[in-house]
Amino acid sequence: MNDEPEPRPLVDGVFVPAGADGTAHLLFSRCDCGAKAFPARKRCAACSGTGVSIEEAPGEGLIYSWTTGPGETPRVVAQVILANGLMVQGYVNAPPAAVRIEQRVRTVAVPAGWADDGTPVLSFAFSPEEGGD
């Protein structure tokens, strides 16, 4: 299909799909007081303030822990600590046997089906770096 529309994120405001380097970036909120949150918050958990801006998180992080979801071929879900110290959770693009704590990962965009209008949609996942640490 030549005329398939450009894929877009499943939900706006969660992540920015891959740039030229193939790395996606999660969108987090940073409050005037310094507190960070993902998914982004409108009101700060630390100070209740609304002086919150949205920033792109670093695309690199380390797996803090992981488990598997339900189903015949369970997908790995991990808690990842990004390079800016924020802990986030999401799918890992690898089978359980290839995942370990402290593994270096980067954020990527992955296909997540189609919207009602036929547009392909994207979600995010963590992809283990080639060659380990």
Binding site: Y64, T67, G90
Partner: peptide, 28 residues
């Protein structure tokens, strides 16, 4: 619906999921 989609993007897990991760982290 939007809230649930954002939740699903972060991984669909049973209630045991977060405790499984805490268990594995302690083992490490």
């Amino acid at each position: 619906y939007r809230e649930r989609q954002i939740g699903m993007m972060q991984g669909v897990l049973p209630p045991a999921g977060v405790f499984a991760m805490r268990t594995r982290r302690r083992m490490h």
